[in-house]
């Protein structure tokens, strides 16, 4: 078990399922590795709970989110990452024609090593 605040215990299962990855690249690849029913279920729950989650983590300064609440923030970030899958594509990845995701490198400022 992680140590989420009491009122978010219902979200623990998403952390266990890997929806609280710390980097953009990992969150994106998690989305791509899942089937739609799982993504949809995560989306529906998070949309319902998002204001509570954001309201809670937003009490902290941006650079001082406590370690035990970082997974909660990551869940909110994951929600934003998977939203296009539900709202636009109806599929985990971009549907129809799109550039192979394995050939795109995502670098997060201050987190990942910069590539040229």
């Amino acid at each position: 078990m992680s140590e989420l605040p009491q009122q978010f215990q219902d979200l623990e299962r998403y952390i266990a399922a890997g929806w609280a990855k710390p980097t953009k690249m990992e969150r994106w690849h998690k989305r791509l590795s899942c089937e739609m029913p799982e993504i949809q279920e995560f989306y529906d729950t998070m949309l319902e709970r998002l204001d509570d989650v954001v309201g809670h983590v937003n009490q902290h300064p941006l650079d001082a989110v406590p370690d035990n609440e970082q997974p909660l923030l990551n869940l909110a970030l994951s929600f934003m990452d998977i939203a296009p899958a539900v709202e636009i594509f109806g599929a985990p990845d971009v549907t129809g024609c799109s550039y192979d995701h394995r050939r795109m490198t995502v670098v997060e400022n201050g987190v990942d090593e910069l590539v040229w």
């Binding site: 994106w28 990452d81 296009p84 024609c97 550039y99």
Partner: peptide, 11 residues
């Protein structure tokens, strides 16, 4: 996330 996905259509 939206920019990333849409850009992959362009690419």
């Amino acid at each position: 996330a939206q920019v990333r996905d849409v850009v992959r259509e362009d690419l």
